[in-house]
């Protein structure tokens, strides 16, 4: 008997640490990929490494990264939010319209309104999904159409011109602090806060539990409905915030604002290592995924490759990213299995 007991611990230790390091390497891997793209492009075109250029990389990725945070919360619970792009468009227009007619409205109020608009739509998404227990893919696809339609009715061919937006508001879109764009700082704060919360609070760990094993979540007494609702609420709110930032960045908005963002966000999140069927992934990964995709986009232009190659390369990379992810998890599973085999053999 004692022959079997003793060695049980030893073989399980080694692969575990390897697994952990592999999992941790996910964010590191994306960061390395970003550096690789950046480095190669810089070799080709030194201007790519200028401060202004790097600032642009951050600004260009900021909105998708911000949306990626909310999307991660939702996807981790085994749901998806396709309405984010429409929310960006609607909230940006509503805030712009307010500024147009109340030019002296406090800037902060602009952000509050945008977030409120997003939160309201997020609440509808969450409510329908959790109370009627219907697939969120369908609910948020429907909301994509409805919100876009409502946006169109409100916009009705009008535009919000740069002159209507207070400078204090657009400043958020271009001012820098120690060379770092405010936009990037705001998004970084959101990512850091969400990343910290997702690691450190019981309620956010519940999100992982729900996505990882819904049945076990029920047995563990997790209030799944409430948590999923909250995830949609936050996703909507962040999309609303992204709308305000969109307006600040572009100083103009028409009906097309945010069109097609939903798929870009899902792509960034998936590249960032968030499992599309829930349970795992980090907001940092999602944000880095957004930075990577944006870096690639700008690198193509900067490398003087025809812009026509953008789409194909982005699509190809997305496929490579998820295939790599799969390969990684298979490898991890195999290494664990052979460790267990070894354990058995002893």
């Amino acid at each position: 008997m004692s022959v079997i007991t003793a060695p049980a611990a030893a073989p399980t230790e080694r692969p575990v640490s390897r697994l952990e390091s592999l999992l941790r390497a996910r964010e590191l891997g994306i960061a390395l990929a970003i550096l690789l793209v950046f480095g190669l492009t810089t070799l080709n075109n030194h201007a790519f490494a200028r401060v202004a250029s790097i600032q642009q990389l951050l600004i260009g990725a900021a909105l998708i990264a911000l949306l990626g945070v909310g999307e991660t919360l939702v996807i981790v619970t085994r749901n998806v939010d396709l309405s984010v792009g429409s929310i960006v468009g609607l909230s940006a227009y509503i805030v712009g319209d307010l500024f147009k007619y109340h030019h002296n409205m406090p800037v902060v109020l602009g952000f509050v309104v945008a977030i409120a608009v997003g939160a309201a739509i997020g609440a509808i998404n969450g409510f329908v999904t959790t109370v009627a227990r219907v697939p969120s893919l369908v609910v948020t696809l429907a909301m994509l159409y409805i919100v876009r339609g409502v946006d169109g009715l409100i916009v009705n061919g009008k535009t919000i011109d740069p002159g209507s937006i207070p400078k204090a508001f657009t400043a958020v879109g271009y001012r820098t602090l120690f060379g770092i764009p405010w936009l990037a700082i705001i998004v970084a704060v959101v990512v850091a806060t969400a990343g910290y919360a997702m690691r450190s609070f019981r309620s956010s760990r519940d999100l992982y539990g729900i996505g990882s094993n819904p049945d076990a979540a029920v047995l563990a007494g997790i209030p799944a409905g409430r948590r999923v609702f909250t995830a949609f609420l936050i996703s909507g709110s962040l999309a609303g915030l992204a709308g305000a930032l969109f307006l600040a960045l572009h100083a103009q908005i028409d009906v097309s604002g945010g069109t097609g963002y939903e798929l870009a966000v899902v792509a960034a999140v998936v590249v960032g290592g968030v499992a599309i069927f829930g349970g795992s992934g980090t907001v940092l990964g999602a944000a880095l995924g957004a930075v990577l995709l944006n870096t690639i986009n700008q690198a193509l232009v900067a490398s003087r490759i025809s812009a026509f190659w953008n789409g194909a390369i982005a699509g190809g990379l997305l496929l490579v990213a998820i295939a790599f992810d799969r390969w990684l998890s298979l490898r991890v599973a195999r290494s664990l299995q052979s460790a267990e085999g070894a354990h058995r053999d002893l």
Binding site: V266, G311, A312, G316, L318, I322
Partner: peptide, 21 residues
């Protein structure tokens, strides 16, 4: 064994990209 939603978002961009090229 990849999830089809992720795969076809990728090929959505890929196919359109090839058409563009």
């Amino acid at each position: 064994g990849l999830p089809s939603i992720a795969v076809t978002i990728g090929t959505l961009a890929l196919f359109r990209g090839i058409a563009e090229i």
